[in-house]
Amino acid sequence: MPRSFKNEKDPWIQMLEIKNLHACVEDNEILKGVNLTIKAGEVHSIMGPNGSGKSTLAQVLAGRDTYEVTQGEILFKGKNILDMEPNERACEGMFLAFQYPVEIPGVGTAYFLRAALNAVRKHRGQEELDAADFLEYVKDKMSVVDMDAKLLQRSVNEGFSGGEKKRSEIFQMAVLEPSMAILDETDSGLDIDALKIVADGVNSMRNPERSFLVITHYQRLLNYIVPDYVHVLIDGRIVRSGGKELALELEEKGYSHINAPMAGSTA
């Protein structure tokens, strides 16, 4: 049973509403009318074959301008965010854990993250943190994903192992405390121990005011981060939605049996 959460005072109980979203890159339509509503406190998972548009959806939500939104709208806490810059969305509480985190040589992780945190804090009307306060603040957050403090001294993602990169993404999420976190294949390439750590980190952050959109290929992750809903994205459309048992079905039967019967009805 999906958890339902009601908070009458809360104006943005609809955390995220994606309505008929179409997005193109160079005349090539990748998202072909995505509809998805995520309430505050919910965890949704998106699964789907390679190249179906999962990362595109994640990047469009975060504000990547490579993709042109040609139709539809995205409401985040009731506000249309399509005209907002990625940093404005981040300040509003949107967070994307990248499928492929970018290496940025020459920019120290600690410096970068403090700049990020202070930008977000400023937007929230909180005081900016100096270097010492920041270090104090992140100590706890590092333990969330058992991250090695030495990584703070290195350039952002540079030379990080695959697992370190993914952990660092979740660590950044813990630092920035977003209200809507999109995790794009954060589990891919992790060994079981690392997967548990990352999942525990995410679970520790679940609360009624924070929602998650978890993109994954593997049902395995969903044993640890148990979703309220699972959606199947194929060829730029959500073709099926269900509870967590849908993931098991997909694991067993694959996408092909879903694709066929739905094709007619969504064309």
Partner: peptide
């Protein structure tokens, strides 16, 4: 300037 890096930084709240 690397577009991917710019986008990454911006998704963390840092202005353009």
């Amino acid at each position: 300037l690397d577009d991917d890096a710019l986008f990454y930084l911006k998704t963390r709240g840092i202005e353009t």
